[in-house]
């Protein structure tokens, strides 16, 4: 369970591993902070390839990130590679209304 990130040119990617829940809160917040502190970032991608499950506090963290991304006028926030079980959770919460889910 961890959160990693990298920035290539102007595109930042945050990758979460394992269960995305409250236990990841600190790590996810730190990763977001680091990414958003980089000047010139034009897009943020949340890669959920390694995420098996997420709970409502993870949805909450994503909403917080969405607000921060908007504040910094970053043009694009993308959620990518979500597994079917994770997609299902996004669907129930209608998160496709707030996020570009790839």
């Amino acid at each position: 369970m961890s959160v990693t990130f990298h920035i290539r040119e102007q595109e930042a990617t945050i990758q979460v591993h394992g269960h995305f829940n409250f236990a990841q809160h600190g790590a996810f917040r730190d990763a977001c902070k680091a990414v958003l502190a980089q000047p010139g970032v034009k897009s943020v991608e949340i890669n959920l390839m390694e995420v098996d499950h997420l709970d409502s506090s993870a949805l909450g963290m994503l909403l917080v990130l969405r607000d921060q991304v908007e504040e910094r006028h970053i043009q694009r926030l993308l959620i990518s590679n979500a597994k079917p079980v994770v997609r299902q959770i996004f669907a129930i919460a209608k998160f496709d209304k707030f996020f570009e889910i790839d």
Partner: peptide, 8 residues
Amino acid sequence: LPVGRFVA
């Protein structure tokens, strides 16, 4: 509620 807290 603060952002990130909600009620389904």
